[in-house]
């Protein structure tokens, strides 16, 4: 029956989605509640005193004025430094699409049923993608609750944009993990490669931000994290070309995974 794998995946994932979402939203809530404790002008001065490489490590470029706002504080305090934390959940979910089930042997049972390999991948991809949306919604609810509880003066619409911008990024990371797992076959190898990919991307983004205005600046363009910059989103709102880029890349990664998985042995 169409959708049975999708529904089963949601049934087995909703608790993890809830735990991750609540945990991350609690972090966000804490950051929002702390906003009134800081003088944003002092914050801006403090940031100006930092060397560019340190600012780059927390996801801040040279346009500091945006960070001298309540929204900017949340961008740095939560979205900036948490980029790597946000990557963990989609990696975990991406591994579940094929690698975990192949390693454990349950994929043999599933694929012995009347179901195409492509359908298994697509239904799982959609279910885990939906769970990423669930995590993001919970994160936003945490931030919004922080605004209400702390009486913080925050542009809720901008906050919503920054938060929901996470969805295409997380889906992209999940799709990349899935393709690496399909290619590498072994869970441990795939996990090593995707971890290296995320860390290298983070380093490249840091170098790109630290080297703004120099010949090394284009290095940052190679990193996918460059296209999720909370400061840029606060300043410009949704950056549609970047979102489209993530969506197209995710689609291509999904197609490549389907193609490769269709042609290869399972669990070997």
């Amino acid at each position: 029956m169409i959708g049975s794998v999708f529904l089963e995946t949601l049934r087995t994932t909703w608790k993890q989605m809830l735990y991750w979402g609540v945990g991350l939203s609690a972090m966000g809530l804490l950051v929002v509640i702390m906003v009134p404790l800081f003088n944003m002008q002092d914050m801006a001065n403090l940031l100006q005193s930092f060397p560019p490489v340190i600012l780059a490590m927390i996801g801040v470029g040279q346009e500091l004025e945006i960070f001298a706002t309540n929204e900017g504080f949340v961008a740095i305090g939560f979205f900036g430094k948490s980029a790597l934390i946000f990557a963990v959940y989609p990696v975990v979910m991406g591994m579940r699409i094929t690698a975990n089930e192949e390693d454990s042997g349950t994929m043999d049972v599933l694929l012995s049923l009347p179901i195409e390999r492509a359908r298994v991948i697509v239904e799982k991809f959609l279910a885990y993608g939906l769970s990423c949306v669930g995590v993001v919604i919970l994160i936003y609810l945490g931030l919004h609750l922080g605004v209400i509880l702390g009486g913080v003066d925050l542009d809720v619409a901008r906050l919503l944009e920054v938060t929901f911008y996470l969805i295409p990024v997380m889906v992209f990371i999940m799709a990349a993990t899935m393709l690496i797992a399909v290619l590498a076959r072994r869970r441990a190898v795939a996990l090593g490669i995707i971890t290296a990919f995320v860390i290298v991307s983070y380093m490249l983004q840091t170098i790109g931000l630290a080297a703004e205005g120099t010949v090394a600046e284009p290095i940052g363009a190679v990193s996918f994290l460059t296209y999720y910059n909370a400061g840029d989103i606060l300043a410009q709102g949704f950056i549609w070309p970047h979102i489209a880029g993530f969506v197209i890349l995710s689609g291509l990664l999904l197609l490549a995974s389907l193609y490769r998985y269709e042609g290869r042995d399972i669990g070997v």
């Binding site: 042997g105 349950t106 043999d108 049923l113 009347p114 179901i115 195409e116």
Partner: peptide, 17 residues
């Protein structure tokens, strides 16, 4: 897929969820 509809399979090293 049509074949799998008409067969039942028990693996040697059975792993279930």
């Amino acid at each position: 897929v049509e074949i799998h509809r008409r067969i039942g399979f028990l693996p040697g090293e059975l792993t279930l969820w």
